[in-house]
């Protein structure tokens, strides 16, 4: 059963997975391209760090995009078929969901491993100035966790009814609209920032997306 579900999910999302996997492999190499331009013997580490930092925002975005791709494609056909296929199977709902979830996870191993390989390759290619170190393993692990988190969250939302997903989106939109109205009214009330801070710092769910995404760092 798992193999069939894995196969169908691969058919649905294979192209996208290949695309994000290539991006994941290339990204670390793009990150260190600046290191090859300047004479590495005299490269001031503090000049290299901003160049590395310039790319750091792409990693969490790629992780989010990868999770989004795998999560939505896992459920697209079920939604289209009004979930008749799931009902026709002799499986409890939770088991069917876990099969879908696991199949998606297996597919996500590909971009994660490719990012890890790309990071190791980039670290090997680069002459790193004194005082700095390459962190290919930590970066790949952070990417893996971010992908896992994004995938799990979006998978949960996608597995629910359209109405539930609508509620989630509505709450977010209402929050931003309220914030905008407060600002237009000249109020200094800030709804979004404290909430954002809670979500993005430990033990918030999205803290893994924050912090430093640096292939080369002190």
């Amino acid at each position: 059963m798992f193999r069939q579900i894995l196969y169908t999910q691969w058919r649905w999302s294979g192209t996208g997975i290949v695309a994000v996997s290539i991006a994941a492999f290339v990204l670390p190499i793009l990150t260190v391209q600046e290191a090859g331009v300047t004479d590495p013997t005299w490269l001031d580490a503090r000049q290299l760090l901003p160049a590395i930092e310039y790319w750091s925002w792409v990693y969490p975005v790629l992780a989010l995009g990868t999770g989004l791709l795998a999560a939505t494609t896992a459920w697209t056909h079920d939604h289209r078929g009004h979930h008749v296929y799931a009902l026709s199977l002799p499986l409890p709902r939770w088991q069917y969901v876990l099969l879908r979830y696991s199949a998606g996870l297996v597919l996500l191993v590909v971009p994660v491993v490719l990012l890890w390989l790309g990071a190791m390759l980039a670290a090997t290619m680069t002459v790193i100035p004194p005082g700095l170190h390459a962190y290919p393993h930590a970066l790949a692990l952070r990417f893996a966790l971010a992908v896992l988190l994004a995938y799990s969250l979006l998978f949960a939302i996608s597995s629910a009814t359209t109405r539930t997903a609508g509620y989630v989106i509505t709450v977010v939109v209402v929050l931003f609209v309220l914030q905008l109205l407060f600002r237009l009214a000249g109020s200094t009330t800030d709804l979004v920032s404290p909430l954002f801070d809670r979500l993005m710092t430990l033990p918030g769910p999205f803290q893994i997306f924050g912090g430093r995404w640096m292939l080369i760092d002190v």
Binding site: A86, R93, A138, L141, A146, S152, S159, P205, V218
Partner: peptide, 28 residues
């Protein structure tokens, strides 16, 4: 520096597990 603390990793993993469990609670 670019570090990933053990706590940070486990918290991310825990939240992922919570979301996965939430998905299994969805209605058929």
């Amino acid at each position: 520096r670019m570090t990933l603390s053990r706590l940070s990793g486990w918290v991310a993993f825990l939240w992922a597990a919570i979301f996965a469990v939430a998905a299994t609670r969805s209605s058929r």
